[in-house]
Design a protein around this nucleic acid. Sequence first.
DNA 1: CGGGTAATTGACCCGGGTCAACAGCAGTGG
DNA 2: CCACTGCTGTTGACCCGGGTCAATTACCCG
Lengths: 225, 225
Amino acid sequence: MLDRAARKAVREVEPRRDLIREGERPRAVNLMLDGWACRYKQLADGRRQILSFLLPGDVSDANALILAEMDHSIGAITRLRYAEIAADEVEAMIARSPAIARALSWSELAAAAIAREWIANLGRRTAYERLAHLLCELFVRLRHGGLTDGDSCDFPVTQGDLADATGLTAVHVNRTLQDLRRDGLIDLRGRRLAVPDLDALKRAGLFKGNYLHLTGGAADRAPAD
Amino acid sequence: MLDRAARKAVREVEPRRDLIREGERPRAVNLMLDGWACRYKQLADGRRQILSFLLPGDVSDANALILAEMDHSIGAITRLRYAEIAADEVEAMIARSPAIARALSWSELAAAAIAREWIANLGRRTAYERLAHLLCELFVRLRHGGLTDGDSCDFPVTQGDLADATGLTAVHVNRTLQDLRRDGLIDLRGRRLAVPDLDALKRAGLFKGNYLHLTGGAADRAPAD
DNA sequence: CGGGTAATTGACCCGGGTCAACAGCAGTGG
DNA sequence: CCACTGCTGTTGACCCGGGTCAATTACCCG
C-alpha cells in the first residue's frame, strides 16, 4: 500500500519530542512505523488534553494538506519511527490509485469516529469506565494491527498520559488503575499491559467496538487513527 | 455549490425525531437547510452525549458512504429541513468537480477539528469555561453562516441539550448559565441568545477560533460540521 | 383552564481534585 | 559499586465542583 512511498523519508524522534506543533503548517502525511505518539492540545494555563493515540500503522492526517495550519500538536510518547510522505506525493498516489484514495479517506473517517467516541467517553463515563474503555480501545487496535502477544501488549504510556487522555488527574488514574487491577480486569506493570478477560473489561467500560469500523477498511492491517 | 443537487430531495422532520440511528447504514449525504440537529450517542443505561451540533449549511457526512454503519445517531433539535443527496449523486459530483470534492473533504476535516476541540473542552475545562466555550463556538459558526442578527441569534437548544453536549447535568447547566448571565457574558432567554461582548465570552471560555478553520474552506459560506 | 415540557431552586452528597510526602527504579557519572 | 538525579508510581488527608433528588415555578399551546 503506502509502504513503498514510506521508504522514502523515514524519520526518528526521541520520546516526548513533538513531530509538529499547533499553529504550524502541516508539512506532510505521516505514517507511523514504530512506537507510539499522540495528538494533544494545551490550554493557555498548561492544562493538557490528549486527543488520540497514534499507533504503528496509523496515518497522521490523510489530507491535512487542505487545512492551512495545525489546530493541535503531535508528540512522540516513545522513541518513534515514522515516514513522511510529501503532499504532492500523496496527491499523485491518490490520482493514480482509487484504492489508496479510499484507504486514506477511510483512515480519516475512522479517526473521526474514534474522536466522537472519546467525546462520549469523557462526557458520560465514570473514571473507572473511562479507563476501562480506553484500555479496551488500545488493546483492540493493537491486536488488529498484530501488535499484541496473546492477551498482552507493550504499553509505554505513563499514568500522567492516561490522565491527560481521560480528563482525570494522575493521582486518580493511579487509584482507578488499582481498582481495575483489584477486580482482575488488567495487569499493568512496567510498560506492559495484560488483559486476562477482554470481554469483562469491555463490560466494565461499556465498550462496543463498532465505532472502530474494523471491517471494510484496507484489507490487511489498517488501524484507525 | 451543492445547492443544485440539494433541491432534489428536501425532507422535513419534527423536533426530537431522528434522521438516522446508530447501527443503520448511512443512506445519503444530508445538507442542513433550516433548523438545528445534533449527532449523539447513547450508552446502554440511557446516558446521552451530544457529539456535535449541525447548523444550517452543514453537511452531515460528506462521505459516510464509505463506512458500513452509523456509530451514532443524528436527531433533530428543532423542526428541520434538509436535503438528502444520494450516494451515487455525490460520487458523480465529486468526479465532475474537484472543487466539490475539495469542499466536501474540507467539511469532513473541519468537523473532525471541532470534535477534537470538544475533547479538550470536556476533558480539561470547568463547567463555566465549557459552557462559555460552547456558546462561543455556536455563535461564531452561526455568524459565519450569516445566521446572527447583530450580537444575537436564535438558540433553540434546551438546558438539557446543553448538559448532554457539555457532559454536565441539566441542573448544573442551569446554575452555570446563571453565573454567565450574572457576569454579563450572555443573555439567554426564550430560545434566543445574545452575546454583548464576544471577546469577553471568548476569554471566559479560553476560546481560540483557530480550530474552526474558517478561512480556506468553500469561498462563500461553508460552516463546519 | 389543563397538561406537558423546560427552567429554577434548595438540601445534601460523593466522585474526583489538590497538596504533599515518599518509594521505586533507571540512567549516569565518579 | 555506589551516590545522585529525575521521572513515575503510590499513598494519605482534606476539599470542592458538580451530581442527585425532589419540589416548584414559568411557559407554551390547544
